[in-house]
Every structure is written in C-alpha cells, then in structure tokens.
Amino acid sequence: MHRYANPTRFLKIARVATPIVALLGLALTAAGLWIGLFASPPDYQQGESVRIMYVHVPAAWLGAGGYMSLAIASATALIWRHPLATIAARAIAPAGAAFTAICLVSGSLWGKPTWGTYWVWDARLTSMLVLLFLYLGYLALSASEAEKGGEQRGAAILALVGVINLPIIKYSVEWWNTLHQGSSISVANASSKIAPELLTPLLLSVAGFSFLFGAIVLMRMRAMLAWARVDARSRRMAEALA
C-alpha cells in the first residue's frame, strides 16, 4: 500500500486511469439508463414509476458505500499518516453526500405516485437522512479545518466516530419505527422478486454509477494535488522575492 502512497506515482497512474474509468462509467450508465428508461417493460404493479429505481438504487449504494470508503480512508490517514488518504477522504465526502441526496430526492419522487406522499418516516428513509447529516457534519468540519491548514485529523476522527455510530443509529431508528407504527410500507418487498428484464439495466446502472463515482473521486484528488502544488510554488516564489 505504501508503494502507492507516493503522490507522484499516484498521479502517473491516475492520469491514465481517470479517462478510462470515466468513459467506462459513462458508457455503462448510458446503457443501463437507456435499457431502463426505454427498452425495458414497466413493472406490473408500479407501472412506469419503477424506472426511478435505475437511478435510486445505485445512488443509495454509493451513498452508503461512499461513507464506508470515507471511513476506511480516514482510518488509513490516522494510522499510517498517508497524505494521499486524507486527500482521498476529502475527495470522497462531497461525492458520497451528493449521491445520498440523489437517493433521497429520487426516492421521494418515487414515493409520491406509489405511496401518495413525498416522505414517510420509514426506517430506511430515516437512516439515509441521518447519513446525509453525518456527511454534512464531516464536510463542515473538514472545510473548517482546511481553512486553518493541517492534517485534518479532526475530520478523520469524526468519520470514524460516525461509522461506529452508524449501526447503532440504524438499529435505533428501526426500533423507533416499529414502536410508533406498524411498517405499512416495506421498501424491501418491492424489490425482493425482480424480473430479469428489470435486473439487467439495474446492474448496468449500478456498475456505471460506481465507475462514475470512482472517476469523480480521481478527478477531485488530482485537482487537490494540483492545488497543493500551486500553493507550494507560489509560496516558494513569494519567499524568493522577499
């Protein structure tokens, strides 16, 4: 792992990898969405609104998976002091937050025709909303620390505290939900049996979104490294002039 902690080596690999990952992501997403939106049959129960799933499910997966990768990058940054891991965490967080928000918005748009309301305090919806808040807290702390300069240890610790708390939150929300109302709406039932014509575009768009996520993270990391280089150069120039 330390072999790839060198920013120069990382940049050499990332320069080649970024367009490949991005193009792969675009192609897979386009294929998945095209089949999903035009070439697949509507659901026998949900009708056309099932097509929101091809955006919603990959966004949910990346929102949750993004927080896991944020926690792993933060742990790596804290334990091995990898400068690249800190940059990776900062690159992952806004992308993960954006996908969590897409998941919530698309889910709420799907909920209106299906459940008759934009929002229910269902256990899954609530957990996802809390996940978005965790992301926002991380982003605010990280931005505040970046302004001050330094290693961003606080943001990394917060990401780890959040990942410890995440299962507790999930469990408590489920407990709370069963307490207040019988679960009249179950998100799980809708997708428990899925026809193969619907599964193919779903898998395609999940893969496509994931590659796009990877491309966004790579681009953001490269941009942050470039900014760091610009900063260092202008500091050197200022010193030379002084």
Binding site: F133, L134, G137, L141, S144, K148, G154, V161, N165, I169
Partner: peptide, 23 residues
C-alpha cells in the same frame, strides 16, 4: 475537542453532535 480552535466552533459542534445523539 474536534472544533477547538476552529472558527464557528459552536455551530459546527451542533452539526456534528445532533445526528450522533439520535439513538
């Protein structure tokens, strides 16, 4: 501890604690 020495520490602390205090 996380917000010590940061600008707007109080508001930041609220944003950090509220989701964690949910359980």
């Amino acid at each position: 501890a996380l917000t010590a020495g940061l600008k707007g520490g109080g508001a930041l602390a609220g944003l950090i604690v509220l989701p964690l205090a949910l359980p």
